[in-house]
């Protein structure tokens, strides 16, 4: 079972808000899909609740992404930076 984030505990970073917005979903839609309360989605997005492995896997399955693409122990690099910064910028941007 997951644990509410305490100050002493490491924060589990996630991309839930970005993925949800990208797919045009409301918190309620995502909550219904994952079988949780809509407020739980808000707490997850704010990093105030660390999900259980089961819930993390359900989210990964729902978004069709590997679990590490949604949850990480280290902060995520912003997607825009990943797409448009760095040496492969022109090639990536061209596609």
């Amino acid at each position: 079972m997951g644990r509410p984030t305490q100050r002493a505990e490491p924060v589990l970073h996630n991309r839930l808000a970005v993925l949800r917005t990208e797919r045009g979903l409301s918190r309620q839609d995502l909550a219904d899909a994952l079988g949780v309360n809509y407020q739980t989605i808000g707490y997850l997005e704010r990093g105030e609740y660390n999900p259980s492995l089961d819930l993390a896997l359900r989210a990964a399955e729902y978004f069709g992404l590997p679990v590490e693409a949604i949850f990480s122990r280290r902060p995520f690099t912003p997607m825009s930076e990943q797409l448009y910064a760095g040496p492969g910028r022109s090639e990536t941007a061209a596609h």
Binding site: M1, G2, R3, P4, G35, V36, N37, T40, Y43, Y49, P51, S52, D54, L55
Partner: peptide, 12 residues
Amino acid sequence: NLDERQRQLRDR
């Protein structure tokens, strides 16, 4: 019928 976060809060 609660989700995992709500169950955990209730237990706490």
